[in-house]
């Protein structure tokens, strides 16, 4: 197994442990966080705080490097434009997240935990991503006409 794959596997594993420990993989807890007007559980703000406190250091280092520690190119986003897609995408995502309390990472963890409902959400999410690709193809074809 090459190192690129090994470390990606390790990162995924640690990410998953983090989601479980944080309570982020528990949709009921996520909805408790999003329910400001009910009995509010602020825990998930601490998840974000903990993640960013660690991430901010790593990304500051990453931003100064041309290559990763394995000598791979740094794939940092280069888009700067704040457009309709970004905001509408964000708002729609918030609606989907608020309906079920599940975002993409936890959906994958729920699969590993053997949650049937989690698998159903995950399949629908993959179908949604495929629909997005089809819409993109159609958009490009119209542009090129």
């Amino acid at each position: 197994m090459n190192k690129n794959i090994l470390f990606a596997l390790l990162a995924g594993l640690i990410f998953g442990f983090g989601l479980i420990l944080a309570g982020m993989a528990n949709p009921a807890k996520v909805l408790g966080f999003l329910d400001l007007a009910g009995a509010w559980d602020p825990s998930l703000a601490f998840v974000m705080g903990g993640a960013i406190a660690v991430g901010i250091v790593a990304f500051a280092i990453a931003g100064k490097r041309d290559l990763s520690l394995l000598g791979l190119p740094m794939h940092l986003p280069t888009t700067r434009q704040i457009d309709k897609r970004l905001v509408i995408g964000g708002l729609l995502f918030g609606i989907g997240w608020g309906l079920a309390g599940i975002c993409p990472g936890p959906a994958v963890v729920l699969l590993g935990a053997g949650s049937l409902k989690g698998v159903l959400f995950l399949i629908a999410m993959l179908v949604g991503m495929a629909i997005f690709e089809l819409l993109e193809i159609r958009r490009h074809m119209r542009h090129n006409k």
Partner: peptide, 29 residues
């Protein structure tokens, strides 16, 4: 249901995973 320490520690693990992936693999988690 408030779990500040577990959530903070879980968050730190998520941050660690994202840090590994960008610094070692050069990819965004």
């Amino acid at each position: 249901n408030f779990t500040p320490w577990a959530s903070l520690a879980g968050g730190a693990l998520i941050g660690l995973a994202a840090s590994l992936l960008i610094l070692i693999n050069g990819r965004i988690a």
